[in-house]
Design a protein around this nucleic acid. Structure first.
Length: 423
RNA sequence: CGGGCUGUAGUAUAUCGGUUGUACAAGUGCUUUGGGAGCAUUUAGGCUGGGUUCGACUCCCAGCAGCCCGACCA
């Protein structure tokens, strides 16, 4: 689906000033660029540009989850108290991030902070035979967590988008196999989002079932986590589980570890039968015996991932979106008010659309060139194409990557060819 | 949840116990047009409630909201 947008029609505006109530780089740049709007602490609206990015990240995740057998669904944000009571997680003493509400008849409800219980409860209706397994349902959906302290812009909010996939396997071996598969799928997601080179599979505390869980940690100064990275091995250990025993098991020498700050952009858990047994989720095997189902939970904070990309990939002028998740492929600018230039820019805009290239067209008039350049740098679309009296005199359109200092003038057909490449 | 700080225009800020000033944004007119341009002009503001005072945006109290540090974060 090719999509173009005229900047003159976009209701959001860029801002020069840094918001006074934000410190984090991701919130500052995303607000200044018109990607998000802060509603309250930890709660952000995704404006047209921001939604474009969010949807692209979601689609990458969707593709990678589908590729390993994921089945997308969407569960409700409103959840029944009884389902949570069954596993002892309704109490505020057990779960301190609950948002709770009531129906008019005073029936208590919870706003989902996760969906393990709800999904297991639902699946008991569908899973009964060994023929029904394995399954890998997932959703990309809004979660609610009543954090005592929201912070770091969209990296730790009270309402945020998460992808959560759950695996249901017949045996521990099947589960282990899937676990390794999803590890690879996760790394593909981070690579496609432009942060793979600094994202480490990190050993973390495993909870009740397995010795370790794995976190996906992206190196960033804004991170809240401290991890020890073994650069030559490409793995890392969360400081919370680092001890001599762990080092020995992993065959890592302490002197090869470097302490780094990082953001947890995903985590994967083997949950065993912790959720399935309490809900009586079981299957009948080939011999007619009832057996427990092995479950795993796999999360990616989608909005946090978006914030992390901004934290990691930006410069003093603004955001630098990786190609796969940029709101548009090219930012087309017309400079000046010359009718010939404007009509040429419009023609280029339409030609780009006809060729299936997503384009953001700065067709605003009366703005100085500097203002348009500054906006373009702030918004951070990978390519900038300029149509001006100067570029036309030199025979075409000036094209420049966001990361380059200087552009070059090329013809319209060369432009199309360049922008179509590697798509 | 413990500690600290802050609420002035759409945004960012200043001054003041006695008619709130500026910049950007927005509107109008003219000029300008390759790195946030200029002149003129207009619009727009003291979080809410109480108290002190002749008089409160300013001082005090409470509430609400926001930020920071810590704790927390399957």
């Amino acid at each position: 689906m090719t999509y173009g947008m005229r900047q003159s029609k976009l209701f959001t505006k860029t801002r020069k000033e840094i918001p006074a109530d934000e410190v984090s780089k991701n919130a500052e740049l995303l607000i200044r660029g018109g990607f998000i709007h802060k509603e309250m602490a930890g709660v952000y609206t995704y404006l047209p540009l921001g939604l474009k990015v969010l949807k692209k990240i979601e689609n990458i995740i969707r593709e990678e989850m589908n590729a390993i057998g994921g089945q997308e669904m969407i569960m409700t944000a409103l959840q029944k108290k009884e389902v949570w009571e069954k596993n002892g997680r309704w109490s505020d003493d057990v779960v301190d991030v609950w948002f709770k509400t009531k129906l008019k008849d005073n029936t208590e409800l919870g706003l989902g902070f996760t969906h393990d219980e709800q999904l297991v409860n639902l699946l008991t209706e569908y899973i009964s035979s060994y023929n029904d397994l394995p399954i890998y349902p997932y959703q990309i959906q809004t979660k609610f967590r009543n954090e005592l302290r929201a912070k770091s812009g969209i990296m730790r909010g009270r309402e945020f988008v998460m992808k959560d996939l759950y695996s249901f396997d017949k045996t521990e071996e099947d589960q282990d196999r899937f676990y390794e598969e999803i590890k690879k799928a996760y790394m593909k997601v981070y690579t496609r989002c432009g942060i793979g080179h600094r994202t480490y599979i990190t050993f973390a505390s495993g909870g009740t079932f397995s010795q370790y869980s794995h976190e996906f940690q992206t190196l960033a100064d804004a991170g809240e986590d401290n991890i020890y990275v073994a650069e030559d091995k490409g793995i890392a250990i969360n400081e919370e589980v680092l001890n001599d025993k762990v080092l020995k098991e992993l065959g890592i020498d302490r002197k090869d570890l470097v302490l780094k700050k990082s953001v947890e952009v995903g985590n994967i858990f083997k949950q065993g039968t912790k959720y399935t047994d309490p809900f009586g989720m079981a299957f009948t095997d080939e011999n007619g015996d009832k057996r427990s189902v092995y479950m795993g939970g796999y999360g990616i904070g989608v909005t946090r991932l978006m914030g992390t990309v901004v934290e990691v990939l930006s410069d003093d002028k603004g955001i630098i979106w990786p190609e796969e998740i940029a709101p548009f492929r090219v930012h087309l600018l017309s400079l000046g008010e010359d009718e010939i230039v404007l009509s040429e820019a419009k023609k280029v805009y339409e030609t780009l659309l006809e060729n299936g290239i997503e384009v953001f067209f700065d067709d605003r008039i009366g703005l100085s060139a500097g203002e348009k350049f500054a906006d373009s740098d702030l918004i951070g679309i990978p390519y900038r194409a300029v149509v001006s009296a100067r570029s036309m005199k030199e025979g075409g359109i000036e094209i420049k990557k966001r990361t380059e200092e200087k552009g070059q003038v090329i013809s319209e057909s060369e432009l199309i060819e360049l922008l179509k490449k590697d798509k």
